[in-house]
Amino acid sequence: MMALGKRLRRTLRRRPKKSDGRMKGKLFTKQDVKDLPPMVEVTGLHRTYEGAEPVRVLKGTSLKVERGEMVALMGPSGSGKTTLLNVIGLLDTPDSGTVKFAGVDVTELKRRKVPLFRQNEVGMIFQQKNLIQSLTAFENVYLPFRYARGARRKQGREQAREALRLVGMLERENHLPNQLSGGEQQRVAVARALVLSPAVVLADEPTGELDRKTSDQVVDLIRELNKQTGQTFIIVTHDRSVAERADRILTMDDGKVVPEKGGSGRKRPTAKRPATKPGNQPRKRKA
């Protein structure tokens, strides 16, 4: 079991490097990603909430998300989108089924290893921002480092500033959340999700409480970060314009991911990045 954590970390870190001559300023080639297992692979997830009347939320859900991909998850309320996201982020435990990160089943992780996994490999963005009101923007972004091991904590301050700079909030680092607008708060929340360079970022309706203009800004930011960092994004949204900025749109209905036409998901019409599934075209990425 100890090996599982180490193996997971090693596998997750297997990303194409910029220093690689073939990759410099270019895209991941089909060959680069072909040999690696999908970043997230969910198979046959079942989740029922017990109560007077048990509610079956996930009914054998399966999906695959490749490295560096940005996937939008749509569907009616109650279809199980958030539950699926919580299960992928190990906030919730499935009744059955597996969640694999880079080929490693993380549902097998020991309970005490789960916080470490969440801290290092998963970043989460919420509709309600969920910033800590008593902490400044900087301290909110630094928060994951507070709970990190010593070696990471040392560079935390610089990395937190860098993350704030990436989301354009560095000048407001000393402001408390109540001194920031909704859009600014969401930017800080994005910075916090990305600060530890997680392999996967899960966003649960990140623009749900924002107006159109701010919503566009936040989505632009997420898209840009996805391109810059090569991190995998799974975004739950009700907003079609937000979903259309993703590489793929997946739809959930009645606890299952609806099969995509002609493949495992609906390809974004204007996608600039290639799908990484076998049979799909190689992704292209802006330099």
Binding site: P115, L116, M124, N130, L131, L143, P144, R146, Y147
Partner: peptide
């Protein structure tokens, strides 16, 4: 939120 970002 703290638990989500890794607090034990």
């Amino acid at each position: 939120v703290k638990r989500v970002v890794g607090a034990r």
